[in-house]
Design a protein around this nucleic acid. Structure first.
Lengths: 230, 230
DNA sequence: AAGTACGAAATCGTATACGATTACCTTAGC
DNA sequence: GCTAAGGTAATCGTATACGATTTCGTACTT
């Protein structure tokens, strides 16, 4: 055998392109030309094409027949859709995880949240955002339903792609967020029932969304469909 | 131009294969060989391959590298995962649709439900199942969030594939189901708040799942992760 | 008789080539 | 100066071909 580092070329192409989208190298609207990508990555067009279609299925890119692929949009509506969907599936995942959470998990989450509080003081939004995923991962990764877990992962990925091009960090909201994390942990520690946990987890994300909407322009709000507060 | 009936060959291959899976022609475990499918459908392997990968993404088939694709499994756990996920996303979609529902929608749903009641009398499970989708479609199709709506559609599709090979119709449960539909309509008509609607829609599906679990063998239940009643 | 190693067949993975479709630019007409 | 039509270039869609990997059957060894 020759090289065969890891996975097929399709998979490596998928990972490479996704990486560049998430990293902000390919910003929304960027035209993804199959032949060009193939040359850059050193692959042929077929694996690249497959990677693109997969990214399309996860709505990282839009694809038009006989035209090509472009990195998916950034409009506020798309952000709202993603956040709303995530509030629902993540809320459910957290609730389903709750009965299986261990004291060690909670301790770990507390440590992460403490680190997030530090980020507030030293103003480190990048690290704050990374830690935020760590925190929530502890809370939902025990979810016994792999379908739901997959939807949560997709939501976070999508969010990362959207954020790198729009905004990410609202200081006032970040402070609230840390406090809500603490409240969530207290609920879990007390063995709260699934419905309470779900409501809290969902509200936590909805609050972030609302902070964003409050910052957006009136024109943006006018084009934004109903807000999902309940 | 020559023919170009509708859509690309990839899309037609996708539709054709999916049709055969949903229709029960390709039962779970069936080995999908690219070359054979290509010959049967009259296409080349590349479009077929793309179709397979797309079906894989929607978990209609499983795909193993250098081995091939097989129609996805039927185990009770998979059914539970799908139903649980659907209870969550469909519950949310129904709740988000509720404020936008019109009296005409409700009348239409009532008519469908009446037809379902007829199916109970004449024992027509096939039509009952088809009408059931019609009924719920009226309730969730107004959902303004296309992401959530897409998840609902995927869930129903997946369910159809699972059902055609496992079971579908539990007479006692069907009767309950019709009654719950009526209750749901009354809630919507009264302008119930989103949380109430969501709770009812979710419970409606969870009840079907529980009816299935009650029928399953103790051994199956033992391998089934926690039930999502809340 | 059972297990293992070898080899052939089957199947997938990718590259290359060419046809079909679309987009863009240039040019002619008003 | 602007609009419309034509043609060319760019890009996608698919077919075919060949190499890589796996699987399965067979023969040989213990």
């Amino acid at each position: 055998m020759t090289t065969q580092e890891a996975g097929s070329k399709s998979e490596r192409a998928y990972a490479a392109i996704k990486e560049k989208i998430l990293g902000g190298e390919y910003t929304p609207g960027y035209r993804l030309v199959l032949a060009k990508l193939a040359e850059d990555l050193g692959f042929s067009v077929v694996p690249v094409r497959e990677a693109i279609r997969r990214l399309e299925a996860e709505s990282f890119v839009t694809f038009e027949r006989n035209v090509g692929a472009t990195v998916a949009g950034i409009d506020p509506t798309e952000y709202l859709y993603t956040m709303q969907t995530l509030s629902i599936v993540e809320g459910a995942a957290t609730a389903l995880s709750a009965p299986l959470i261990t004291p060690e998990d909670i301790a770990r989450a507390r440590a992460v949240n403490a680190a997030m509080r530090e980020c507030l003081e030293h103003f480190d939004p990048v690290r704050f955002t990374a830690l935020n995923l760590d925190f929530h991962s502890v809370l939902f990764e025990n979810c016994p339903n792999p379908h739901i877990l997959d939807l949560v992962h997709r939501g976070w990925n999508r969010l990362q792609a959207l954020r790198s091009s729009t905004f990410s960090y609202v200081p006032g909201r970040a402070r609230e967020s840390v406090a809500e994390h603490e409240a969530l942990l207290n609920l879990l520690e007390a063995g709260a029932d699934a419905e309470t946990v779900e409501r809290a987890a969902r509200a936590h994300r909805a609050a972030t969304l609302h902070a964003y909407l409050a910052r957006s322009t009136p024109d943006q709000r006018a084009h934004t469909p109903l807000t999902p507060t309940y």
